[in-house]
Computed example of a mutant assay.
Amino acid sequence: MPRLIHFALLMALCTSAVAQEGDSPWSGDAELGFVASEGNTDAKSITANGSLIWEEGNWKNDSQMQTLNTESEGVRSAERYFVSNRLAYTISPHNYLFNYIAWEDDRFSGYKYRATIAFGYGRRIIEQPDMLWDAEIGPGYRKAEELSETGGATEEDGILRAASNFRWKISPTATFEQKLSVDHGAENTVSKSTTSIKTTVKGGVALKVSYMVHYTDNVPQDKVHADKQTTVTMVYSF
C-alpha cells in the first residue's frame, strides 16, 4: 500500500507547514483511519483523506483529497482516488459564484476515470453561530471512460450540478455535517451523500464517523448502482 502511505505522509507534512504559519488564511483536516465498503468494492481497508481551505477577502478555495487502497495476499481488492477543487467568490453577504472541478479514479466501479467541471450560483441559506447551510446550482460538463482491456467506451455529457452542505455544531466538541450533490445529465446521473459527525478528543485531534452513498444511474455491466462506505478516522484539524 505504498501510495496510500506516501499520501498520508504528504498530508502530514503539508499540515505541519501550514499550522506553523499562525494567523494564516489556510485551514484544513488530515484524516487517517478504517473503512468498510459495500457495493462494487467489498473490503475492509485503511483510508487517508485531506482537506485544505484558503479564505481571504471575498475568495474561498476548498481542495479535497481522498484515497482508498487495499491489498490482501497480493491481490488488490479496492483502489479509489478522488481529488476536487472548489473556488467561490462572494458577491453579497449571502450570495456567491463558484467553480468546481473533480477527478475520480475508481477501478472497481467499472470506470477508468470520471472528470467533472461545473460553475454557477450559490447561496448561504442559514448562517448562525452554530449552524451553516450552503446550496448551489449550475451547468457543467462530465467525461468518463469505462474500464476495459480493449479500450472502454467514453461518455461525454452536459450536466446540471446541484449541491448542498449543512453543518451543525451540536456542542462545543461535536459537529454534524451533511453533504449532498447531484450531477444530472442526459446520459447519466451521479449522486453522492456523505453524513458525518466529528467529536473533538483533545486540541486539534478528533474522532470522525461518516457514511457515504455514491449512486450512479447507468453503470457498466455486472456493476451495482450504489457504493456504500462507512468510515472511522482520526482527524487532525488546523
Rank of each mutant, 00 (worst) to 15 (best):
Q66I: 00
T67N: 00
L68D: 04
N69T: 05
N69S: 14
N69K: 13
T70M: 04
E71G: 07
S72N: 13
S72Y: 15
E73W: 05
G74V: 00
V75D: 12
R76P: 02
S77M: 07
S77G: 07
A78D: 04
E79C: 03
E79W: 08
R80M: 06
Y81N: 08
F82I: 06
F82L: 14
F82Q: 13
F82K: 10
V83M: 07
R86M: 11
A88G: 10
A88N: 09
A88T: 14
Y89D: 02
T90A: 13
T90L: 04
S92P: 00
P93G: 09
P93Q: 05
N95C: 06
N95P: 00
Y96M: 05
N99E: 11
Y100Q: 03
Y100E: 07
I101T: 10
I101G: 08
A102Q: 10
A102R: 10
D105N: 15
D106Y: 08
R107M: 11
F108H: 03
F108I: 10
F108Y: 12
F108N: 01
S109G: 05
S109F: 00
G110W: 01
G110T: 00
Y113H: 12
R114G: 01
A115P: 00
A115G: 08
T116A: 06
I117C: 11
I117K: 10
F119T: 13
F119Y: 08
G120D: 04
G120I: 07
G122I: 03
G122M: 06
R124A: 13
R124S: 14
I125E: 11
E127Y: 13
Q128R: 15
Q128T: 14
Q128L: 15
P129Y: 07
D130P: 01
M131C: 12
M131E: 14
M131N: 06
W133D: 06
A135G: 12
A135H: 03
E136T: 03
E136K: 15
